[in-house]
Every structure is written in structure tokens, then in C-alpha cells.
């Protein structure tokens, strides 16, 4: 562990915490523009967070402590996820603590806690949301794991930092398996981040809501933390996707100056990714809930095919 590594680690986490709401704002802005609406300001998510933190928290009378700790645990998990995703540099002191499999476990841990919190109040919407969230989770999780496995088999490592190190700093090569895995990853990310066509982050229509039904009872600082954690999750997913499929620009170990170059690269990549996400959300309609398993099963199969392609072609 080097001082530079420690610095890069801290910088990555702080950058993620600071930039994640901006990414959400950017996607929302583009979505509005593409749908011919007037867009909210780029900094709108920060204003919302500030407002929510100032507000009093209202908690249901019979809520147990699980309801109150869940937002913090979700936030902590997402902070760690942003810490181990190689956003700026591959020389991360935290990277050995959790590899790709542990990362999937980390997302699952956050999902389990927020679902339990939703069941805790015992309202019809909360339990409905918990059930749907776990449904999407159990379908998306294996697909995500298979995507990460395809990359692991290419690089002979499950450590995210090593995967990116190997993919980014070697002669340019196109891996057919990674191309297929990329499609699967995009589908999984849409589902996991409650995006159209799986879920709509801007709906409170009871028949269709998933993520919103989960967090219906939250208010004040708890809601702020959940929202922040949700944008951190989007940020972490985007960073992992970028690191796996467009890894160029991430700083190698022992090159402190490259980090300075990595920041603008990351911002540019995220900006482009955000526009693409808004575009996907605009040109797709939200699907019925019972089509979601088909959608995610397709992602799962694509990820398995990616694995097979790698084993067959050796690439």
C-alpha cells in the first residue's frame, strides 16, 4: 500500500460521493430534453438532498430498528462499492478486501436490508415492493456474476482492479465474449438501478412501482440517504461498466500523474454514458412486471453465452 494508493482511494470515494447526484441530475436532464420537456437544473438532486436532510424524519409507529438502520447500511454498502470499483486508478488499497464476487454480495446485502425495511412497516405497498425488488434481484444477480466471470476468465483474476489493469494496459484487442457480456451488463444495470424499461424512477403508480414502493415510508434524512445511495449505486454500476468495457484512461499503479488525467477521462465517459442511458430510457416503454423475468433471463443467457464464447474461442 502506497501513499499514492491511499490518496487515490480517498479521492475515488470522495469523488463518487460528490459526483453521484450530479450523474443522476445529468441523466434526468437529458431524459427531459429527449422527451421534449423543460429540464430541471443539473444541480437539482443536490437541492433535493439538502431539503430532505433539513426535514424531520417521520417513522411509522411500529417500525423496528431495522427500518432505521437500513438506509445507513445501504449507504455504507454503496460507499464501499464505489471504493472498490476502479474508477480512477487500479492501485486501490481497498481492492483486495472485496473482489467481483464480493461486490455482487455487497449489492445483495444492501438489497436484502432495504427489502426487510420495506416489510418492516407491514403495509401492502411496502411488502409488494419488497417482493418485486427481491424478484428482480435474484434474476439480476446471477447475470451480473456471469458478466463478471467472463471478464475474470479473460484476465485470470476476480479482482476488479486486476481485471481493469489487464484489460486496459495491453495491446488493443476486441473480445467477442466481452461484447456479448456488455449487452447483458447493460440490461442488468437497467434492472438493478430501477430504470425504464424495468422500473420507472419517477412513478408512484401502484401497479408498476418497484423501487418507489420499497422506500414509500421513508422521509427526511432516511429518504435522503436512500436517494443518495441509489445514485451511488448508479454511479458504481456505470463505473464498473466503463471499467470493464471501455477501460482506457484508468491510471496504472505507481503513476500518480495519470490520476490527474484519469479524472477528466472519467467525467467524459460518464457524461457520454449518462446520455446513452437517457436515450435508452426514452426510446423504450416500461414493460409489464411479468415480462421482467423474460428480460432478465435473456440477460442471464447472454452472459452465459459470453462465458461459452470465451471458452470456445479462447478470447
Amino acid at each position: 500500500m502506497s501513499i499514492v494508493g491511499l490518496f487515490a482511494q480517498l479521492l475515488a470515494v470522495i469523488l463518487a460521493l460528490a459526483l453521484a447526484p450530479l450523474l443522476t441530475g445529468w441523466v434526468n436532464q437529458w431524459r427531459a430534453w429527449l422527451q421534449n420537456r423543460r429540464a430541471p437544473g443539473l444541480l437539482q438532486p443536490y437541492c433535493v438532498l439538502h431539503k430532505l436532510f433539513n426535514k424531520e424524519s417521520v417513522v411509522a409507529e411500529h417500525a423496528s430498528p431495522i427500518f432505521r438502520v437500513a438506509p445507513y447500511i445501504m449507504f455504507g454498502c454503496m460507499a464501499l462499492a464505489c471504493g472498490i470499483a476502479p474508477t480512477l486508478s487500479t492501485d486501490l488499497p481497498l481492492a483486495p478486501a472485496a473482489d467481483a464476487i464480493a461486490l455482487v454480495g455487497l449489492f445483495a446485502l444492501a438489497r436484502v436490508f432495504i427489502s426487510l425495511a420495506a416489510m418492516d412497516i407491514g403495509t401492502s405497498f411496502g411488502t409488494l415492493g419488497a417482493r418485486r425488488e427481491m424478484l428482480i434481484g435474484f434474476l439480476a444477480e446471477p447475470a451480473l456474476l456471469m458478466v463478471l466471470f467472463s471478464a475474470s476468465l479473460i484476465t485470470q483474476s476476480t479482482s476488479l482492479a486486476m481485471i481493469v489493469e489487464t484489460l486496459a494496459h495491453q495491446p488493443f484487442a476486441i473480445y467477442p465474449s466481452l461484447a456479448v457480456a456488455g449487452v447483458a451488463f447493460t440490461m442488468v444495470s437497467l434492472a438493478e438501478n430501477a430504470r425504464v424499461p424495468v422500473d420507472n424512477p419517477a412513478t408512484h403508480l401502484e401497479l408498476t412501482m418497484i423501487h418507489e414502493a420499497l422506500i414509500l415510508e421513508y422521509s427526511g434524512r432516511h429518504l435522503a440517504l436512500v436517494e443518495w445511495a441509489a445514485s451511488l449505486k448508479l454511479f458504481a454500476y456505470s463505473c464498473i461498466g466503463l471499467a470493464l468495457f471501455v477501460p482506457w484512461g484508468v491510471a496504472e499503479a505507481g503513476t500518480p500523474l495519470a490520476i490527474l488525467f484519469a479524472i477528466p477521462m472519467l467525467v467524459v465517459k460518464l457524461a457520454v454514458g449518462g446520455v446513452l442511458l437517457a436515450l435508452i430510457e426514452t426510446i423504450n416503454a416500461k414493460m409489464r412486471l411479468f415480462r421482467v423475468p423474460e428480460f432478465l433471463a435473456t440477460a442471464f443467457l447472454l452472459a452465459v453465452i459470453a462465458l461459452l464464447v470465451h471458452v470456445l474461442l479462447g478470447a
Binding site: S57, V58, V59, A60, I121, T123, F125, L216, E217
Partner: peptide, 9 residues
């Protein structure tokens, strides 16, 4: 923090 009945939409 304030305790209140569950909201449930």
C-alpha cells in the same frame, strides 16, 4: 424524529 401512523400512499 417523529413517530406517526404508517403513510402507505
Amino acid at each position: 424524529l417523529r413517530r406517526a401512523p404508517a403513510w402507505d400512499c
